[in-house]
């Protein structure tokens, strides 16, 4: 399990290659990369803020929950903070499991929670100034998928 919160730009392809190489016995690997959108020039820069010493343990607890719930054999999370330009990766999540369903669902679960629950604050800088972004209603709605009764496996 690996959680990194960093200001440095990273290459999601390299992150996935390194993750996959570290897992000789995985049956399946799923990854998701969130990329800063350009939004037709409305976004010139994103600025992400974390609470050092609080954000990392929060993500580690989330990763542990995902690992147990979806029988994941490995998880990697990278989250950027600081200034982020359009086209750059903001977040990377990779999961490994014996079977594809667990790997897909684990990554989906992690992203839904990172999007609207993880301790990050996001400011969008555009031609008309800057504004803080709050999760959309749809983001909160996505979370409810994971609290509904689980079908028997």
């Amino acid at each position: 399990m690996s959680v990194t919160v960093q200001t440095d730009v990273f290459d999601a392809g390299d992150a996935l290659s390194a993750f996959s190489r570290s897992l000789p016995d995985a049956g399946g690997v799923v990854s998701f990369t969130g990329i800063a959108r350009r939004d037709d020039g409305r976004t010139q820069m994103l600025e992400l803020e974390a609470y050092p010493g609080f954000t990392e343990p929060w993500i580690e607890t989330l990763v542990e929950e995902a690992r147990a719930r979806f029988s994941l054999s490995a998880v990697k999370v990278i989250h950027r903070i600081g200034p982020i330009l359009p086209g750059e990766a903001i977040v990377f999540v990779a999961t490994a499991a014996s079977h594809r369903r667990e790997a897909f669902e684990g990554a989906d679960f992690l992203m839904d929670h990172l999007k609207s629950r993880a301790p990050f604050w996001k400011k969008e800088h555009g031609p008309d100034g800057a504004r803080w972004i709050e999760p959309r209603q749809a983001d909160y709605q996505d979370l409810t998928r994971w609290t509904a009764a689980q079908p028997p496996r």
Binding site: F54, L114, P119, F120, K122, I133, E134
Partner: peptide, 25 residues
């Protein structure tokens, strides 16, 4: 660095953080 609800006694070195709605990735 632990979320709390309601009132809580504060130690002399307490760190209190106010966290607005969060939005990652």
């Amino acid at each position: 660095k632990a979320l709390v609800r309601g009132n809580l006694a504060l130690s002399a070195q307490a760190e209190v953080a106010f966290l607005p709605p969060m939005s990652g990735g």
